[in-house]
């Protein structure tokens, strides 16, 4: 690739990304009232998205080989337990991550 072609490639990545981020705000302007279906989606989507993001962040875990996703399961259990116990975001995240690092570095 020439430098110009590289610049075009990177620019297309930027334009494509911004299109997906800006589009809903351009289509539904705050001056006009948003259709009720979109308002409903705005309320119903987030819980579904957070579920989707959990799965997305685990997508490369292979449960058929290697450690069979066991360290991931254990560490997630630790995150959930810590969070239900203390409900301190940073503590739950740090505790789960340290647990995961120890598991993959020392045991699995």
């Amino acid at each position: 690739m020439t430098l110009t072609q590289q610049i075009v490639t990177i620019s297309l990545c930027v334009i494509g990304t911004m299109a997906t981020r800006f589009l809903p705000f351009l289509v539904f302007s705050p001056k006009k009232s948003t259709p009720t279906y979109i308002q409903y989606l705005g309320k119903a989507l987030p819980a579904a998205i957070f579920g989707m993001l959990v799965v997305y962040s685990l997508k490369d875990t292979n449960i058929l080989s290697g450690s069979h996703g066991l360290p991931e399961c254990i560490a997630i259990a630790v995150v959930v337990a810590l969070h239900l116990w203390k409900r301190q975001m940073l503590l739950s995240i740090a505790g789960g991550t340290i647990c995961y690092m120890l598991l993959v570095q020392l045991i699995f």
Binding site: A47, F50, S57, L103, Q105
Partner: peptide, 24 residues
């Protein structure tokens, strides 16, 4: 040796999911 540090993102999404779960 930061093997496994990438789990911090999963942990964060789990916590946010859980917070949403407890709220509804």
């Amino acid at each position: 040796n930061t093997q496994g540090l990438e789990f911090v993102m999963t942990a964060m999404f789990v916590v946010i999911f859980l917070e949403q779960w407890l709220k509804e």
